[in-house]
Simulated assay, not measured.
Amino acid sequence: MTSDPAIPAENGTGSETVTSAGAMAGRRAEPDRLRDLAATSAVLERAKGALMALTGCSADAAHEELLRRANAGNRTLIEECWITLGSGSPAKAVPAPD
């Protein structure tokens, strides 16, 4: 007699499946995350360019100003960028279809 409990052998449907499903979900989410990052970066660069054109400041100074305004208004940086670009939100930036 042994003191080891009788546990049936794994057939590959246990934790391996969960791990593999999690890895697949992570791989599927990566393109979405990169697309969101690219869109955010583009909006930030446009807002910085607008501030630079209006005030004659450097790119670094424009970025700092956007951060300052966002903090002062209790907003995120991307919200401040949309406000600076004059649309107020991403939904308003895209014209509605006719």
Rank of each mutant, 00 (worst) to 15 (best):
25 A>I: 14
58 S>P: 05
23 A>L: 15
58 S>N: 06
90 P>E: 02
14 G>I: 09
28 R>E: 13
73 G>C: 04
94 V>N: 02
94 V>D: 03
72 A>K: 01
57 C>K: 04
21 A>L: 12
93 A>Q: 01
60 D>E: 10
82 W>F: 05
29 A>K: 11
76 T>Q: 09
43 V>Y: 05
98 D>S: 15
38 A>C: 04
58 S>G: 09
14 G>R: 07
56 G>A: 04
45 E>C: 08
62 A>K: 11
88 G>H: 00
27 R>K: 15
18 V>D: 08
61 A>V: 08
62 A>E: 09
52 M>Q: 05
15 S>R: 13
8 P>C: 11
25 A>H: 07
80 E>N: 02
15 S>G: 07
73 G>A: 10
64 E>C: 07
87 S>T: 13
13 T>C: 10
24 M>Q: 13
43 V>Q: 08
2 T>R: 13
4 D>W: 08
29 A>T: 08
12 G>L: 00
78 I>G: 00
34 L>N: 14
90 P>Y: 01
79 E>Y: 07
66 L>C: 06
31 P>Q: 01
95 P>F: 03
95 P>K: 06
67 L>E: 10
81 C>F: 02
12 G>A: 01
7 I>W: 07
47 A>R: 01
13 T>E: 14
11 N>T: 15
33 R>E: 13
63 H>M: 07
71 N>T: 15
38 A>K: 07
24 M>G: 10
20 S>D: 13
47 A>V: 02
18 V>P: 03
69 R>S: 06
2 T>E: 13
3 S>A: 10
38 A>W: 03
91 A>T: 00
67 L>C: 13
20 S>M: 15
46 R>V: 07
13 T>H: 11
5 P>K: 09
22 G>M: 06
38 A>L: 08
92 K>S: 02
10 E>L: 15
89 S>A: 09
8 P>D: 15
36 D>Q: 12
38 A>F: 04
79 E>V: 05
89 S>W: 01
53 A>Q: 10
82 W>K: 00
33 R>K: 12
87 S>V: 06
35 R>P: 02
94 V>I: 13
81 C>P: 01
69 R>C: 03
87 S>Y: 13
54 L>N: 13
35 R>N: 08
38 A>T: 05
48 K>C: 09
79 E>D: 08
40 T>H: 08
20 S>G: 05
25 A>T: 14
44 L>A: 11
61 A>F: 04
8 P>M: 14
26 G>C: 02
28 R>L: 15
62 A>N: 11
74 N>C: 11
31 P>W: 01
94 V>C: 04
86 G>C: 04
37 L>I: 10
8 P>L: 14
24 M>L: 14
3 S>R: 15
28 R>Y: 11
52 M>Y: 00
49 G>C: 03
7 I>L: 09
89 S>M: 02
7 I>H: 05
96 A>S: 09
40 T>S: 04
9 A>P: 11
6 A>I: 14
86 G>T: 04
89 S>P: 04
88 G>E: 00
92 K>Q: 07
62 A>M: 06
4 D>E: 12
53 A>W: 04
15 S>L: 15
51 L>S: 06
70 A>C: 03
60 D>Y: 06
76 T>D: 09
70 A>W: 02
54 L>F: 08
74 N>G: 09
28 R>A: 14
